[in-house]
């Protein structure tokens, strides 16, 4: 067993003295440390919940980037430049994941040992969801005026919001199974929203 791992202290790469595993900078010599393997929430100093305040999240992200971005290390040694790049990369990944409700739901499910595969482009297992999506898609493809597209987009948008509320409720009730189902539903709603948006630009710009 590694005692230092237990104590959450590792040697600082620069001054070789002890530094907390999660520290961004060595408290003795000030050198930037590597990003380590902490989860996205911890990295951005957020509580691991589905409901998050996006303004707070962004503030945290900017705050960390201000200190860790490679632009702050332009005059430093090659090693410090490389570490800051890994730190900034990790921050970007964490922020991109947490700011998006769909990615956040999937990430939280994975974190809590109940992963859903959102990248799988397989068939929709849920019959009800399948029917619903087919109908919506058909309606969108038949829409020809900007107004019709806007109406569909708006309807879809309110369903996106409702779905997010349900996901939140499922997480709060500790019902991960349900949260997983809803996340898959959200994925299709978001996809439809994207399609509606590009269709809107298409029909709007037609003479």
């Amino acid at each position: 067993m590694n005692v230092s791992a237990v104590a959450a202290v590792i040697p600082c790469w620069s001054c070789k003295g002890p530094v907390a595993t999660r520290a961004l900078f060595c408290s003795v010599c000030g050198a930037v440390q590597g990003p380590g393997t902490i989860d996205h929430y911890t990295r951005l100093g957020m509580a691991a919940t589905f409901d998050i305040d996006l303004d707070v999240l962004q503030r945290q992200y900017f705050g960390f980037q201000r200190r860790l971005h490679p632009d702050r290390f332009a005059a430093k040694s090659a090693k410090e430049k490389a570490l800051s790049q890994s730190q900034a990369t990790a921050l970007n990944e964490a922020y991109e994941t947490l700011k998006d409700p769909l990615k956040r739901a999937a990430y939280l499910l994975k974190l809590w040992g109940h992963p859903v595969d959102l990248t799988a482009c397989g068939t929709i297992n849920d019959r009800e969801l399948l029917m619903e999506q087919m109908e919506k898609r058909e309606a969108l493809s038949e829409a020809t005026t900007p107004e019709q597209v806007a109406k569909l987009a708006m309807e879809n948008e309110s369903e996106v919001i409702a779905c997010q509320c349900h996901i939140s409720a499922a997480f709060n009730a500790g019902n991960l199974e349900e949260a997983g189902h809803l996340a898959i539903r959200l994925k299709y709603l978001v996809k439809l929203a994207d399609e509606a948006r590009s269709k809107k630009t298409r029909v709007t710009r037609l003479p």
Binding site: S14, C15, K16, G17, V28, K76, S77, E80
Partner: peptide
């Protein structure tokens, strides 16, 4: 120039460590 940056960094790191320990 790169080596000097690196060397200065390591001297400063040792000095910082000496200050506390």
């Amino acid at each position: 120039a790169e080596t000097v940056v690196e060397a200065r960094r390591s001297v400063l790191a040792v000095q910082a460590a000496l200050k506390v320990d």
